[in-house]
Every structure is written in structure tokens, then in C-alpha cells.
Amino acid sequence: MTSAIIVVIEQKEGVPTPPSLEVMTIARTLATQRGAAVVALVGGEGGSETASALGAYGADKIVTHPQDPTESGLWATAVADMARSHEPIAVLLPHTADGKNLGPRLAALLGAPMASDCVDLTADGETLVAKRPVYAGKAMITVAGKSHPLIATLRPNALTAQEQQGEGIVESGQSQEDTAPALAIVLKEILESAERKIDLAEASTIVSGGRGLKAPENFQMIEDLAAALGGAVGASRAVVDAGWRPHSEQVGQTGKTVSPRLYVAVAISGAIQHLAGMRTSKYIVAINKDPEAPIFKVADYGIVGDAFEVVPKMIEAVKNL
């Protein structure tokens, strides 16, 4: 049997998510180098629709499984069982909210080493080598797993997903009768789920606002700019602590680490703990009235000016594109 690289796919309504396709892309490169097969695993309803899209991203085989991935304990057991039967050299997944939760469960179940939040994976002979930020991106380490498989989560937007030739063989996995007992955590209630937002960590454009916006209602223009750019809204800790914005929007060392293609920081000073969460963004734009603000040190493009004048003009300009 050829060795396998397993990719755990996340999907929304039958469509694989962009971070999952990025993982597929790196898996394909590694598999080609190592003469291994890419085996994609998809769980839950919509699995078979998702499966049909994955061949075009380089899956040799796609296994669908009825288990709902939101039941993380049961899904982890199902994934570990499927992975074992392929004797994988690696199990790869996106470093998303679900991936962060699933990866260590797989490491526990498979007794495997794990590298979290990787920005690159390469093969060095038999060994898989992962590059990942530590100390909130103030340093990078290169780590190698001492045994197979290596579990690795890949930071969203770290690379660009690429389509490939081909289509994979689709199989359906079985739910095993005697999988581990459900870890008896009961979901009692879901609040404020009316609006399904894109997870900040996965967004490819983010517009963030800081304390310089002076009042919560002034975030309307941040929302409008984000909407015009097709992006998500982020915030500094100062405004989250003030209760202007929910914690889910906080970017930084004690919030989310994001790495979008475009990060627009409006009226944010650029404290080291904020930079920790966004400095690996591809392009950073800063709008701040203080030319000495540290945010300008990491910004690719800056405008020194009053956000209340600059942002409305930006919204208009983007809408007119």
C-alpha cells in the first residue's frame, strides 16, 4: 500500500471551505514529492457534494463519513479510525476554530506529534518538517516529527489554493457501532446565531477599528468599508474591553491571530500585542492621525489623517470600482 497524506476537509453546505483547499494544495505537493496518495476525509451532511469538488484539488481518494463534525469528540474518533486504516505519514487540517479543536484530539488518539498553526510544510527525505510562528510571530521555528504520522494544522491564507488535474475516487466510510462512548457534553442552547459570520481567522480581507473611533456607533463606517471590500470586521482590545465590539472580533495576542491578504487598521495605534495578531497579513493599510503611531512601521500603505474624513471617502471609492 502506498503511504497516505490525510486531509480533513471542512465544508459549508456541500462546498469545501477555502482554508481546506489550501491544505489540499500543500498536501498534493508533499504527496507528489513523497510518492504518497492524498486521501481527503469529509464528514456530515453535504459530504458527497463536497467530495465531488475535491478531485480537482488533487485528492486521489475521498472518503465521506456520516458523522457530523460539530460533535467534535465523535468526529475525532471517526477521523482517527479512518486515518489508521490508511497508515498515514501526515494528517493535515486547517487551523480554524474547528481544526484547533480537532487536531490535538487526533494527536491524542493516534499518539502522534503535532505542529499547530503551520505556515509551511516540506518533506526532508522521510521526515516531514513544519515551519510555524512562536511568541506571537516574533520568531519562527522549524520542527520535525520524530514519528509518523505528523499531525499539522495550517494557518489560513498562508498559501494560495491551486486547482489540479484529475478526479478522485469517492468512497463512503462506515460509522462504527462501537466507536468510543460519546463524551457526554450536552449542547443546551445556541445564542445570537441569527447572522452567520465568517470566522475572522479565515477572512481574506479584514477592516479593524480602534479606540480612535471614539464611540461604538462610529463602527458603522468600519462595517460599511468591510462590506464594500467583501471582508470582515476586526477590533483592537481597547474597544473590545470597552464593550463596543464582541470579543470574537478582537485581533491580537489575546484575541485572534489573522493573516488575511488585506488588513486595514483604522485608528489603531499598533501596540505590540495587536501587531502580534496581524503582522503576517499580506498587505497592511493603516489610517491614523498620528504620523508617529507604531502601526505605520508595519503598514505597507499608510494615510495620515482623520478616520472620519478618510474612511467615508474610501467607502465611496471602493463602491465606485
Binding site: A112, P113, M114, A115, V129, P133, V134, G137, K138, A139, M140, I141, T142, V143, A144, G145, K146, S147, R279, T280, I284, P291, F296, K297, V298, A299, D300, Y301, G302, I303, V304
Partner: peptide, 19 residues
């Protein structure tokens, strides 16, 4: 279960500009 092969400083961001 992991070997740290190396630690490096991150690539410097190329200096930006005030538009």
C-alpha cells in the same frame, strides 16, 4: 515527539510608505 531544528527571526516586512 518533535525536534526543534531551528529558530529564526521572522522575515522583516519591507518598509511601507505613507501614501
Amino acid at each position: 515527539s518533535l525536534t526543534v531544528r531551528s529558530m529564526e527571526m521572522p522575515a522583516e516586512r519591507s518598509p511601507g510608505r505613507i501614501v
